[in-house]
């Protein structure tokens, strides 16, 4: 018998603390940028007691922060769902090819049709993600597909998209710069328009995720038990992947293919709350929001007025921490 003196995890407390951290960070983040606003001024402005910075906060900073929170939460929740369904800790929107699909579509718009209106970009990016998702699900629908082969299929589809992107960069070198910034993922110049694009999707998807949470736990017992307890495991997997793809696709469409959050946030959350989806998903979403918020704030604050795209910072901060996590997990076993 294995003797493990495990520290009792307190998932609810962890979630509460994460929520507080997110709120505090949001206030700090609103103040940071080319013009610094102190946190107390931010609070009084937000509460409407003071109007000195109202314009800059309402028009520039606030929508951007809301977008960072929404997109970070969405990407992280998608990653947590995918890791649960595919039963592979490496699964994430990047790995299963969804980000690559939207990247290819976005690139086509930026490079081949540079004159198209701004709002075309998010829609085509979402369409790109959706096409990859449909292909992936067509493969997944086949009976008796193993979760691991699903991840591998995603990698293969992603590779094809990647090749397509490289081809376009060579063939249409016009605005490669803009395309690259989009691929890295950034919140630069985003405003209420993008919030309006993303928020409705998440307003539909987050409640669906809440309904699916108990089923995600059931899936973690394995297909046979899930079926024995009266669920159709294949259909359930299909629905869960579909939800994750829609989440990731809508976020990527608006903020670009910001990597690493979908992979990293659920891993951090798991250490705080354990495996249960009831706690893991909200914690992942909060952590995802915190990571993207930090990345975007640092990107704005390190050397203003020059901005570093958030996607670069998520990787720079995320990768070392991820390696540390892996080492920690290896030691545990």
């Amino acid at each position: 018998m294995k003797k493990t003196t495990r520290k009792q995890k307190r998932p609810l407390l962890a979630i509460l603390i994460l929520a507080v951290i997110l709120i505090v960070l949001s206030v700090i983040s609103i103040g940071i940028g080319a013009l610094y606003i102190s946190p107390d001024a931010v609070v009084t402005n937000l509460l409407g007691l003071d109007h000195s910075f109202e314009f800059i906060i309402q028009q520039y900073r606030l929508p951007r922060i809301i977008l960072a929170i929404l997109a970070g939460a969405g990407l992280a929740a998608a990653g947590a769902i995918l890791q649960g369904v595919i039963r592979n800790p490496l699964a994430s929107p990047d790995v299963v090819g969804i980000s690559k699909g939207s990247g290819l579509a976005a690139m086509a718009v930026i490079l081949i049709f540079p004159e198209s209106p701004v709002y075309v970009l998010p829609f085509s990016a979402f369409a790109g993600a959706a096409i990859i998702a449909v292909l992936l699900l067509m493969i997944a629908r086949k009976k008796s597909i193993q979760p691991s082969s699903l991840a591998l299929s995603g990698i293969a589809l992603g590779a094809v998209c990647h090749a397509g992107m490289q081809y376009m960069m060579v063939k249409f070198p016009g605005d490669v710069n803009a395309a690259l910034i989009w691929l890295t993922g950034s919140l630069w110049g985003r405003n209420w328009e993008e919030v309006k694009l993303l928020a409705p999707w998440l307003l539909i998807l987050f409640p669906i995720v809440c309904i699916l949470i108990p089923k995600l736990d059931l899936m973690s017992l394995g297909d046979e038990l899930a079926q024995g307890l009266g669920e159709n495991a294949n259909r359930l997997r299909f629905i869960l992947i579909f939800t994750a793809v829609a989440l990731a696709g809508s976020c990527v469409a608006v903020v670009g293919s910001i990597g690493f959050i979908g992979l990293l946030a659920p891993h951090i959350a798991r250490r705080l709350t354990g495996e249960k989806a009831k706690y893991l998903l909200p914690a992942s979403a909060l952590i995802g929001a915190i990571i993207l918020l930090i990345a975007d704030t640092l990107g704005r604050g390190i050397m203003p007025p020059v901005e570093i795209p958030a996607g670069i910072l998520t990787a720079v901060i995320g990768a070392p921490y991820f390696l540390y996590l892996l080492k920690f997990e290896a030691r545990k076993q």
Binding site: L221, G222, E224, L225, G228, G274, K276
Partner: peptide, 19 residues
């Protein structure tokens, strides 16, 4: 409905950590 009449326990089932 079947699951209310019949329960199946597969060979060496796996549970998520911490359950």
């Amino acid at each position: 409905e079947v699951a209310k009449k019949l329960a199946i326990l597969p060979q060496s089932p796996q549970a998520p950590e911490g359950l």
